[in-house]
Design a protein around this nucleic acid. Structure first.
Lengths: 210, 210
DNA sequence: ATCATAAAATGACCAGCGGTCATAAATGAT
DNA sequence: ATCATTTATGACCGCTGGTCATTTTATGAT
């Protein structure tokens, strides 16, 4: 019976169409300033229908962020392919992340949005949490890379790989977040995007690569 | 004429009373879940009056965060007093910041809240921006400390002091933000608060202290 | 083709929110 | 006592995220 399968596909397609519409609206107006009515209109569906596919506005936003994660992950995968040492891969991942924050600003902002939210207060399913953190997520690739670097002697040992991984991730996101949100006062301090990134990279190079 | 001064004092006191009330409400319920009506009730004033003293809910929240900044600043001031080298002062500031995030969680969360907001979209006065970033703010103390460490040879040179300052600040906030928001998945990775902080400190020690 | 059942979609509706403003009360100068 | 100015009020507004009784559409058995 192919009907069940077709219906399943159509359901998934509709889901994607709603995400498409939400992306247009959220990216155009900003998440906070966008309304579910706008999303419904863009999707040419009623608001009630949107809520058949997503249980809240935040849930829909998460779906967009998940797309961003996927893009970032693929980008990282490509960037480390063919590189030898863990340390070099690490640097490639860093550059990748930074590039992502420029080339896919809208998705990056979606990721940042959830970075500032307490996981416990987000009502996520097991699957959502798993996909974002555990499965082959960007952060797991980073951890594998770090373990690789510790094995091949290119990355300092002595700190647990998992701790180092999440610390690096957090530091990098912190820097990118400041670049995103505090641009306005950069002139006051005579700093800019590039100098912050260079400082960050230099600290990490000396701090964890041996 | 002492009446104008008395009125000025009373106005300022009322302002502080409103912030007191808002703190109680926001800290109890969380900023997003709190309403201006609740604040008004707690302050035993009408909502309209609140809006005579603060131009928006966010403006009121900022006033709370500013108190947090003040506490952090004083704490930093005390912690660096009597310490010799820039590098040692730097470490003291780091510990201070981390302690602040524990001992004054509510204020710390207020700071984090604005860390995730784009400055340009916040409608802040010149004074608010100046006080938060320029005056003798925590970040300026950090910069002075770094310059001191560069002079006395305890901190690596080669990177502009201002860039290094803001990078350090951003990295540290990033780590504390992850600790705050991602606790829920720490078990999944076998990490915890302390191991992340240790990694962070170790990276910085090797990365910038010489 | 007809019809009963189930699945999908609708949009009027709701409570709560941040924010406003015409009005009223309190205060101080005359 | 009178009046002008400052301070305070709370009813009111528009908009939002979210719900749900109702309708429309698709399906499979007859």
């Amino acid at each position: 019976m192919g009907i069940a399968e077709r219906k399943e596909r159509e359901k998934e397609r509709r889901r994607q169409e709603i995400i498409d519409a939400a992306e247009k609206v959220f990216f155009r107006t900003g998440f906070d300033q966008s309304s579910m009515d706008q999303v419904a209109e863009e999707a040419e569906l009623s608001k009630g229908t949107i809520y058949l596919y997503f249980k809240s506005k935040e849930d829909l936003h998460w779906a967009i962020a998940a797309r961003g994660m996927e893009i970032l992950k693929e980008s990282i995968r490509r960037s480390v392919a063919g590189i030898r040492t863990g340390a070099e891969k690490l640097m490639a991942i860093g550059r990748c992340f930074i590039e992502f924050s420029e080339k896919h600003r809208d998705y990056f902002l979606s990721l940042l949005f959830f970075e500032g939210k307490n996981l416990e207060k987000l009502h996520l399913s097991k699957k959502q949490v798993h996909d974002a953190f555990y499965g082959d997520s960007p952060i797991m690739i980073l951890q594998q890379t770090i373990e690789e670097g510790m094995s091949d002697g290119s990355i300092r040992t002595g700190l647990p790989a998992a701790s180092l991984t999440h610390t690096l991730w957090a530091q990098t996101l912190g820097v990118l977040q400041v670049i995103q949100n505090k641009k306005e006062v950069f002139d006051l301090f005579g700093i800019d995007r590039e100098s912050l990134i260079r400082s960050h990279i230099e600290i990490l190079r000396k701090g964890i690569i041996q």
